[in-house]
Structures are given as C-alpha cells and as structure tokens.
C-alpha cells in the first residue's frame, strides 16, 4: 500500500513541480533540447547572449537575431525574438538590411567562424569598414562542426581534421586583428568559460553604437577535440589556465597559441559615426541646404 502511494506521488510530481529557468521567457522551450552535442560550448555562449539581452533592459521587441548556417547558426531558431536563419555566409548582409530598414532595432548576428569568416568573409570586412551598427558574435570552435569536421579558416596550425588527417599545413586567421584592421569599433575576445566577462562584453557590445565584434572560443567535443585526442574538459581547462586577460593588447599578439597563452579582453572601443546616422544627416542637409 505504502509502495503504491509513493509511486503515484513520483508520477504526479514532475507535472506540477517543474521549476522555471530565469531565461525561459527568451527561449523557445518547445524546441529544447537543442541539437548541440553534450559538452559543446555554443549553448553556454547562447545563454550568455540571452542573459546580456535581459540585462540591457531594452524591450524584447527591439531586438533581432540573425544567424547563418552551421552549428551556431541554430541559435536564431531557439530564441523567442524576431530571428532569421539565413543562407550560408549571408548573416551580415541580412543584418545590414534589417538595420537600414529600421535603425531602432538592435541587430545581433550569432554565427560561427566558418559562416562569418570563410564563406562570409567579405561581408564581414565590408560591414566593419562601413561601421554598420550591428553586434557580431562569432563562436570560434576551430572547425566546421556540422558538416563533419573539415578544416576551417580558423583551424590551428598542425591540428587534425577530416580533410587534414596529418595536420593542418596552413595558419589560422587572427580574427580580432582582421576586425580591427577592417574598421570595427568594438572588438573583444573571450572564451565560453569566462561567462561573466562574456555576458558583460555582450551588454557593452549591444549598447555600443557601431560595429561590435566578439570572438568566443568554444570547444567542439566531437569534431575537434576527439579528432585531436584532447578531452573536452581538458580543452575547457586550457581556456581557463592558458589564457591571459589583457585589455587593449596589440592586435599582432592576438594569435591563438595555447602554449604561449591566448590573449583575451576588450581590444578596441572607439566612437565613429554609423551609416544610418550619416545618411539621416545627409538627407537633412539636402532638404535644408
């Protein structure tokens, strides 16, 4: 009798007592669990991004999230905001379009290294050159995760991938240096384990007027860590131990080398007029010369 009683209690408990997560209002709960693998850092970065959106205190209707193709490209599908899952590499052009149509919207591009820097590389440098008022979050997991672990533009030298089984002969991009050289006005780099600094950087980037770029290092447990015989937890511990926080570091020292220590921090934060401001000013000048 007592046993039967306990069983009914256990059965009815989950229905009544499922507690609510604080970010529940920003995620599409019906799509959870997401597709990201156990140990993947994208979920952490995504949650930091949502916390930052919450912390800014801006009305959710004034946000829009755009992402391209890839593992991190799924982000746009899980957020309960206006969001766009665009064609491969074209997240920034879509974001530029949204921003030009309605400059009051805070546009966040949430995408991966392959999407933003390999197929979408030119869009990135030109949006940075124009200083488009968008926030670009690049999750750098060193590989093309979703398509099967092929070598990417950010794969470290001599790292193994599906297409470079004996090691990658090429050097990877130095993403913050590329962004600074192209004219981005806010550039930062963090890893997924530095969640608090990361959330703070996202808040700063959303509030910043101009092109803000944040590179987030994240582990890929299946296609990068396993292929290179690194345990995911060791990789995350490397993010914690072999990194140096140095704000305003010189761009040339920002290459990713865990033996030497990877430099994290906010590298540039300057004010520069954005195209939507300039266009309004030009229009006013034409009307009343």
């Amino acid at each position: 009798m007592a046993r039967a009683k306990r069983q009914t209690k256990a059965k009815s408990a989950p229905l009544e007592e499922i507690p609510k997560h604080p970010l529940e209002d920003l995620i599409r709960v019906e799509r959870i669990p997401h597709i990201w693998c156990p140990g993947c850092g994208i979920g952490t970065v995504f949650s930091a991004c949502l916390s930052a959106i919450k912390q800014t205190g801006i009305d959710y209707g004034k946000f829009s999230m755009v992402s391209g193709i890839g593992c991190s490209g799924r982000g746009a599908g899980y957020v309960r905001l206006d969001s766009f899952h665009t064609t491969h590499g074209r997240a920034i052009p879509f974001a530029t379009g949204i921003k030009m149509a309605d400059p009051s919207v805070n546009v966040i591009v949430f995408s991966g290294d392959g999407d933003l820097f390999a197929i979408g590389g030119n869009h990135f440098i030109h949006a940075a050159r124009r200083n488009m008022d968008i926030t670009v979050i690049c999750i750098n997991n060193f590989i093309y995760g979703m398509t099967g672990g092929q070598v990417a533009a950010t794969t470290p030298h001599m790292a193994k991938s599906a297409t470079t089984p004996y090691g990658n002969p090429d050097s990877p991009f130095n993403l913050p240096m590329l962004a600074i050289a192209s004219g981005a006005t806010y550039v930062a780099r963090w890893t997924m384990i530095h969640s608090r600094d990361l959330t703070h950087a996202f808040v700063e980037a959303i509030n910043h007027r101009g092109f803000s770029f944040i590179e987030v290092l994240s582990p890929c447990p299946i296609n990068y860590a396993r292929r290179n015989k690194i345990k995911t937890m060791d990789m995350v511990r490397q993010f914690q131990n072999n990194t140096i926080i140095k704000n305003h570091a010189a761009p040339s020292e920002l290459d990713i080398d865990f033996q030497k220590g990877v430099v994290l921090g906010k590298f540039i934060d300057i004010d520069k007029p954005t195209p939507d401001e300039i266009l309004v000013k030009m229009r006013d000048q034409r009307k009343n010369p």
């Binding site: 997560h21 604080p22 959870i32 990201w36 156990p38 850092g41 979920g43 952490t44 949650s47 608090r196």
Partner: peptide, 29 residues
C-alpha cells in the same frame, strides 16, 4: 540516458549563479 548532477553539499551554495551561466542546456539554476 545521461547522469544529471545532484546537490552534494547544499549548505555550501552561495547563489553565485555560475552553474546557471555555464550550463549549455538551461537545465540548472
């Protein structure tokens, strides 16, 4: 089929929210 975490030392928690920030699955707070 995974082993979820459990609270081992409940009196030690200082409500720092770090597990909540770190969890990729929105599963802990």
């Amino acid at each position: 089929g995974y082993h979820p975490p459990m609270v081992v030392k409940s009196s030690e928690c200082l409500n720092c929210h770090y597990c909540e920030l770190l969890c990729p699955e929105f599963a802990i707070y």
